[in-house]
Design a binder for these strands. Structure first.
Length: 290
DNA sequence: CTCGCCACCTGGGGGC
DNA sequence: TGCCCCCAGGTGGCGA
């Protein structure tokens, strides 16, 4: 019995991109949150053990966490927020992190944080070690890593007007602006590409040049894209004992990401790719306009 | 303030 | 077979 709440998988078209890595963006983190709410909430941490260092240090001796109870699991952008006696644990999955309940197998070389609880051992696996687990004691205000985050894309504080205002005066490409977590929290490379395609917006368009109607359309596209991904991942949690983090489900849904060279699902013309901010962008030249 | 770019890390794929 | 290079990504931090 191995429950793998790994970061989901709006995975790139394997043949086009040549890989099947998991890329934790907001939907994958939210699905993980839901799984932890079912399995970790209410558990007491018996011990926490650390492997190789992650992006940031834990911020306290791991023994300090022993005996503390995890009350609830929240999320802000791509951060999981475990409410623990006396503070909170911030968890970021970086780009290759996943959380899973251990089976009988011993920890692997990429299992860098082990949480022992009454129900078993929860492991953070993160081959690239871009992720982090950070202790944030109560009474010290909002943690600086999440203080600057923009509105939650599926919350009431995000709509076309808010997005339009956040983009005003910015000359950077809209694709790059969407990756800026101050604009909207949780959008990563895959969903930025997908949302722009759905909204029919050229990823190179200047962010501040978007008309209000187009900002409305983009905000709706972001909401729809993320909500569908959350729903697809959440549906794999019916039986959390066998949840595998949505290994299926998302991957066939990407309309442009990882599909450069393949025909556009909407118009049939070959999808293109370019590099923006040292990051890949896939798009349709015909369906997406400035 | 904005912008552009770097560093960090490592498995996997492709080329030779 | 083996080796080496390149690529993917999130985000803080840097200098301009």
């Amino acid at each position: 019995m191995t429950a793998d709440f790994s970061a989901g998988t709006w995975r790139a078209n394997a043949s086009a991109l040549g890989d099947n890595r998991r890329m934790p963006e907001m939907p994958e983190v939210e699905v993980t949150r839901q799984a932890l709410e079912l399995t970790l909430a209410g558990q007491t941490l018996r011990a926490v053990a650390l492997g190789r260092p992650l992006r940031w240090p834990l911020g306290c001796p791991p023994e300090l966490l022993s005996g503390r109870r995890v009350a609830t699991i929240g999320r802000r952008g791509k951060y999981l927020l475990l409410q623990v006696d006396g503070g909170e644990l911030l968890i970021h999955l970086g780009m290759s992190g996943s959380l899973r309940w251990a089976g009988a197998d011993p920890p692997g070389p990429h299992d860098h944080v082990l949480f022992d609880t009454e129900r078993g051992q929860l492991r953070l696996r993160d081959p690239r070690r871009f992720g982090a687990v950070i202790w944030h004691p109560q009474g010290t205000g909002v943690h600086p890593l999440i203080a600057h985050l923009g509105p939650e894309p599926l919350g009431a504080g995000f709509d076309g007007a808010v997005l339009h205002a956040a983009l005003a005066g910015r000359g950077t490409a809209i694709k790059l602006a969407l990756l800026d977590q101050r604009v909207v929290a949780g959008v990563g490379n895959i969903y930025a590409c997908e949302s722009l395609f759905r909204a029919g917006i050229d990823p190179r368009a200047a962010a501040g040049s978007l008309s209000r109607p187009r900002a409305e359309r983009l905000a709706a596209a972001i909401r729809d894209t993320l909500a569908e991904a959350v729903a697809a991942g959440g549906s794999t949690l019916r039986d959390f004992h066998h949840a595998d983090g949505g290994a299926g489900g998302f991957q066939e849904r990407a309309l442009v990401y990882g599909r450069a060279g393949l025909p556009c699902a909407r118009c049939g013309s070959p999808l293109l790719h370019l590099v923006q901010g040292q990051r890949r962008t896939d798009y349709c030249r015909r369906c997406q306009r400035r």
